[in-house]
Write a protein that binds this DNA or RNA. Structure first.
Lengths: 248, 248
DNA sequence: AAAATTCTTTGACCCAGATCAAACATGCGA
DNA sequence: TCGCATGTTTGATCTGGGTCAAAGAATTTT
C-alpha cells in the first residue's frame, strides 16, 4: 500500500510535473541522470507532520504535489505560519542540520527527496543546482517580506484579501493562465490555518470572509470553492497596487 | 569632502572590518584581488535614501559601517520595515534589476559596492562567492521568519523585548562577547523606526519602553543608551525560549 | 440512521493598542 | 541667546479584533 503510493509518481525526471520550476530546473541531461540516482519519493497523508521543529533532518527535497506548511510555535501554544509550500517549492537547508520549524502536510503530499549529504556533494560540483537554489531562496525571501507587510500593517479584511490574491495567482500560474478577470479556485487551508497564516483568530477569518461575500468581492460554493468575479477588485481590497507593481 | 569620506576607509580587503562575515568571507587571496579591481566605496549620510523602491539598481554591495533599513510602503503611507542591514550584510539581488524596497541609511553609512554586471560575471566563475551568498540569504530568510512570528503573534511588550534582544545579540557578537548577564548597547533606531519594524505606532513603542524601564527590565541613559541588567529576564519578556533554542 | 467528530458561523462583550492631542527635551543654525 | 525643527513622553478616548459561548453544517463511524 505504502509502496504503491510511493511508486504512483514519475520515476523519470523527464516527465516530472515540477521539472521546470524546481531546484533541478536548470540541470542538463547528464546532471539529471546523476540526480535520478540519489532521489526517492515519499508520501505523506493530510495532517501528517513531515519534520518536527528541532529534529535532525537528513534529507532535503521538492514538493511534487500537495501542500505543506512551515509553522513556528511558542511555548504557550501561539502559532504562526511562516511558509506555505506548494508544488516545486524546496524543503530543507543544505549546510544546516535541523529545521527550526514544523513542516506539516496540509493535504496529501508527495515529495521528491535527496539524502542531504549526497545532495550537498552534488551541489558543490553542479553550479546549476546551487544557482537555481539561490534564485529560489531569494524569491522566498521576497515573499516573506511581502508577508511581513501583511502581518504588520494590514487590517483583517486586507489580510484575507491578500491571502486570496496569493492563492488565486498561484492557481493561475499553475494552470498557465494570466491572473485577471474572473477566477475560480479552491482554498487549500482550513479557517484555522488561514488564521495562523495571517496572525488572526479563526473567528475573525470567518467573519471577514462572510463580509467579503456579503460585499460581492467573492462568492463561495461550499466552504472551500471560491469564485472571484473581478480580480482587480480583490487587489484593491488587499490594499495592493492594482497593477501588481512587478518589475523583472 | 565627499572624496575624503570615500577614501577614509580601507581600500585593502586584507584589513577590512567585515572581511570575515561578508559575501567575500570565503574568498581566496587571488579571488580577493579580482574583487578589489571592481569594488568601490560609497558613503551616505544619515537619512539619505540609498535606493528608491522600483528604481533600477546597477550595483550590489556590503554594508561596511553604519545601519540601513529596507522598508515597504503602501499607497496610503503605512510603512513596514522588512529588513535591518548591519555591517557585513549584503544589499541587492544578482539576477534582478530593481529593488522592491526603499533602502535608507539610518546612520551615516559606508558601503563596499560592485557594479552588478561584473559581480554577476564573477559569481559565475567563483563558487566561493555564490556559496557564501546562498548561506547569507538562508540566514536572512530565517531572520525574516522569526520576525513574522513577532509581527503576527506577539504583544507590544514582547515585540519591544524581542527587538532589544536582537540588538543586544548583534552588538555582543560584533564585540566578540557572549550574549549573557548584563549588557549595554545603543539603540540605532528612532521610536518611529522601531514602530515600523514592529508593526506598532511610535506612541505604543514609547509607552512599552517606559513600562520595561519601570519594571526594571532595562534602564536608559539618555534616550538611546540601553542597559540590560539581566539578559535572561529580557528573553523571558520577549516570550522566547530562554535557552535560545539554537541548533547548528 | 443515529452518533460522534471536525470545521464553520454568528453573537455578545471586552481590551490592547490605535488615534488624537498636548507638552517636553534636545540640538542646531542664525 | 533665541527660535525652530526633530524626536520623545504622557494623557484621554475610541475601536478593531480578540475572547468566550453556543449553535449550525459536513463528514465519518458505528
Amino acid at each position: 500500500m505504502l509502496n504503491e503510493k510511493t511508486m504512483s509518481h514519475s520515476v523519470e525526471c523527464g516527465d516530472c510535473p515540477i521539472r521546470h520550476r524546481a531546484v533541478c530546473a536548470r540541470c542538463e541531461t547528464d546532471e539529471l541522470e546523476r540526480l535520478e540516482e540519489i532521489k526517492y519519493y515519499r508520501s505523506f497523508e493530510a495532517g501528517q507532520t513531515v519534520i518536527w521543529s528541532g529534529d535532525r533532518m537528513d534529507f532535503v527535497g521538492s514538493v511534487v504535489s500537495g501542500i505543506a506548511t512551515l509553522t513556528q510555535t511558542m511555548e504557550d501554544g501561539r502559532t504562526q505560519m511562516v511558509g506555505l509550500l506548494l508544488p516545486s517549492d524546496f524543503v530543507g537547508r543544505p549546510g544546516r542540520n535541523g529545521s527550526p520549524y514544523d513542516v506539516v502536510a496540509t493535504t496529501d503530499l508527495v515529495m521528491c527527496c535527496f539524502r542531504k549529504k549526497p545532495f550537498e556533494a552534488m551541489m558543490e560540483r553542479t553550479p546549476h543546482i546551487a544557482h537555481r537554489l539561490l534564485e529560489m531562496t531569494l524569491d522566498e525571501l521576497d515573499a516573506a517580506r511581502e508577508w511581513m507587510l501583511v502581518l504588520g500593517r494590514k487590517t483583517a479584511r486586507e489580510k484575507i484579501a491578500s491571502l486570496l490574491t496569493i492563492l488565486a495567482r498561484r492557481d493561475a500560474t499553475l494552470n498557465l493562465r494570466a491572473p485577471e478577470g474572473a477566477m475560480v479556485f479552491d482554498l487549500p487551508l482550513t479557517r484555522e490555518a488561514m488564521a495562523d497564516y495571517l496572525g488572526l483568530t479563526l473567528e475573525t477569518v470567518s467573519r471577514q470572509i462572510s463580509a467579503l461575500k456579503r460585499d460581492g468581492v467573492i462568492s463561495l460554493q461550499g466552504k472551500r470553492h471560491v469564485t472571484v468575479p473581478d480580480f482587480v477588485r480583490l487587489l484593491e481590497e488587499a490594499g495592493d497596487d492594482s497593477d501588481g507593481g512587478l518589475l523583472a
